[in-house]
């Protein structure tokens, strides 16, 4: 995602022309598209978030801060906190599971690296809906895991694994693990082997070499991975719809319910959306700055 920007920046210094009329006309669709379908929807959502809810689910254009206040209402605050906890737990599990894999792929011979990368790419591109359904097959009380456990006498009666917080976190980890592995792998691949060897030569043990050399050197990949897992995990409501069965709602479910479900409160849904987007923006800005500091130091 960052490569695009550096490409443009590099090209700017080489040979770029001032656009003429034809060039502007060819560029216009891109700019119009971005303005119409990226910028405008966000701005309209921002306006909506300060409006009042009308009767019959409509919107009344009267300024209010009530929607944002409602985000911190006890009922919703509980769900917001739960979402942050679940997304945080998902991110932590993905990091712990994914880092060794990314490191191993980055250090493998080229042949193995290509094979393993492909094996991570396939789940990355496979619809999360299908992958979540696969877990449903396994976890259902009349599903595979329960019947196996009963058959081998480990449990006497099938118990409900589906529709639990554990199932939701499992589904989220399964969905997002490739998003953690791939950016970390990119950092590991760039890691200079000589530095790691130097650490060992200077008498550092594996733990010390890992914490003092490898982790700092791969921190851009780690932050990118955390970002790519945490924020989408906050908003993805379909996984907990399927594996949580409506019992383990997260922010995404609340937003969805304001627009398509029974709640029908567009201004409140918009406020939740803006709040989530703000959290997202702050996280990006923060990590961007952190990466800049890491690079300059």
């Amino acid at each position: 995602m960052r490569t695009g920007q550096t490409t443009i920046a590099a090209a700017a210094s080489v040979r770029q022309r001032t656009p003429g009329v034809t060039a502007w006309l060819l560029m216009a669709p891109l700019f119009l598209w971005v303005l119409l379908f990226v910028v405008a929807p966000t701005l309209i959502m921002l306006v909506y978030s300060f409006c009042e809810r009308g009767t019959l689910g409509g919107v009344v254009f009267k300024f209010t801060l009530a929607n944002y206040a409602a985000v911190f209402d006890a009922t919703y605050l509980r769900i917001v906190i739960r979402s942050i906890l679940f997304a945080g737990l998902t991110t932590a599990v993905c990091l712990v599971m994914g880092y060794p894999v990314a490191y191993h792929i980055g250090r493998s011979s080229e042949k193995w690296r290509n094979i393993l990368l492909m094996l991570v790419m396939i789940p990355f591109w496979t619809s999360f809906l299908i992958r979540t359904y696969a877990w449903m097959t396994i976890l259902k009380s009349e599903g595979l895991l329960n019947s196996l456990l009963v058959q081998y006498g480990l449990i006497t009666q099938p118990f409900e694994m589906l529709y639990t917080p554990g199932a939701v976190v499992l589904g989220l980890v399964y969905t997002f693990l490739p998003f953690m592995i791939l950016p970390i792998y990119t950092s590991v691949e760039k890691l200079d082997n000589a530095l790691v060897e130097a650490a060992f030569d200077l008498g550092a043990g594996p733990m010390r070499a890992f914490s003092k050399v490898i982790v700092p050197m791969t921190s851009p990949g780690i932050t990118a991975g955390i970002l790519l897992v945490f924020v989408p995990a906050l908003g993805l409501y379909a996984v907990n719809d399927i594996l949580g069965g409506g019992k383990v709602d997260m922010i995404g479910n609340i937003i969805e319910n304001q627009f398509k479900g029974n709640a029908r409160n567009w201004p409140f849904g918009a406020a939740l959306g803006i709040a989530l987007m703000a959290a997202f923006g702050i996280a990006f800005w923060f990590t961007g700055r952190r990466q800049a500091t890491v690079q300059t130091s």
Binding site: P41, M45, V231, L236, G252, G269, F284
Partner: peptide, 16 residues
Amino acid sequence: PMIIPEVIMGVSLLIL
């Protein structure tokens, strides 16, 4: 649009 949570994108486009 590549990085924003899909639910936000869906909702904002619906409003538009």
